[in-house]
Design a protein around this nucleic acid. Structure first.
Length: 329
DNA sequence: AACCATTGCAACCGCTCGTTC
DNA sequence: CGAACGAGCGGTTGCAATGGT
């Protein structure tokens, strides 16, 4: 059978405008993410469903961290890429605040080149650079199953950590602070020439919009409240792959701490507003981690390394023991 | 100041996979 | 069981921003 075109002709292409973003976000607030096929029809957007999904997943959904990758994130990406290859979605599942597209772009534009410089023979393959010198190749299906299990368990842990009860039990103040913080960050940058490339996160833009919603939007009752609540709901819906700034960062950090023994993907050092409150041990640890001390930075990474390597060993020695490392969670 | 090369990244394209009927 | 369809993923492209001459 021939592959039908995913979109009708005449759909708009190119960068998204703030108006389109707002329409899309408003729709998802009401209906939740999913059923993308219906989105263009129901919203009147001249965009293909894939485009809507992509826009939401990569830019509009709450909890996305944009901008500079931390050293820890870099290392994690490098190691995960070595283990998993160009399976960006899988890699991104270990860095919930980053999108697969973001990681992929970062790898292609920066990390690959940097590694190539350091390792002249490097061609960007997987499982061929870091680990294969001492271990035999793992059959794809085998490690893929284990990977799926890992991701499933990680997502489960995240879901539990981000369960509605936990979120709702947090002080309401957090939400407002979050939005105030977000707004203050980007308030000055809304007049940039290129919208899509300059907007760090639509949430920041929408902050301004929610403060002064257009008439169309303001006609909806309690739009601001529902927007914030909706974002919370999204966190529940998307809990497997996203977090929501301050509100969920505590839980996420704890979850990641339990996952990896350290908090890697959450870079609070650059923005104290988003700093989570942590247990004394963790607090000490993160205080240390924010220091530019590479010897300290190595410690958590080797834990991840150990975890990943152990995973491979288990995988090689016992195909049927996929539940073993579940105890890690 | 003008031009060209490079970089960064948002978005698209086409394929695969999973689900439904 | 297989066709149809929707969703997701990875590769690639296009273009604005930036840097160098």
């Amino acid at each position: 059978m021939g592959r039908p075109p995913c979109c009708d002709k005449g759909v708009k292409k190119g960068p998204w405008t703030p108006e389109e973003d707002i329409i899309l976000v408003s729709y998802i607030q009401e209906h939740g993410p999913g059923n993308w096929r219906a989105v263009p029809t129901n919203t009147g957007l001249s965009r293909c469903s894939k485009s809507c999904r992509l826009r939401w997943a990569n830019y509009l959904r709450p909890g996305i961290k944009r901008g500079n990758f931390t050293e820890q994130e870099e290392k994690m990406i490098i190691h995960l890429q070595a283990l998993l290859g160009n399976r960006w979605a899988a890699i991104a599942s270990y860095l919930p605040q980053r999108t697969d597209n973001d990681i992929k772009n970062y790898w292609n534009t920066y990390l690959k080149k940097r590694i190539k410089k350091l390792e002249p023979g490097f061609e960007g393959g997987s499982l061929g650079n870091v680990y294969n010198s001492s271990s035999k190749p793992i059959p794809r299906g085998q490690w893929e199953r284990r990977l799926q299990t890992d991701i499933h368990m990680a997502k489960k842990a995240l879901s539990e950590a981000l369960s509605p009860n936990k979120i709702l039990s947090l002080p309401e103040q957090n939400d407002s602070n979050l939005y105030n913080d977000i707004g203050s960050i980007k308030q000055t940058n809304t007049n940039s020439v290129c919208y899509a490339s300059s907007a760090d996160n639509i949430a920041r833009l929408l902050k301004g919009w929610m403060k002064n919603p257009p008439n169309k939007a303001s006609s909806k009752s309690n739009s601001i409240v529902s927007t914030q609540n909706s974002f919370n709901n999204f966190a529940g819906i998307e809990s497997a792959s996203s977090s929501e700034g301050k509100t969920n960062s505590v839980d996420l950090s704890e979850t990641f701490e339990s996952l990896f023994g350290y908090n890697d993907s959450l870079d609070y050092s650059s923005n104290s507003e988003f700093s989570p409150s942590l247990s004394p041990e963790a607090n000490t640890f993160f205080q240390d981690e924010t220091k530019p001390d590479t010897s300290i930075a190595e410690i958590p990474f080797s834990l991840l390394e150990k975890w990943l390597l152990d995973d491979i060993k288990i995988s090689c020695s016992d195909v049927t023991s996929s539940g073993d490392h579940a105890t890690l969670f």
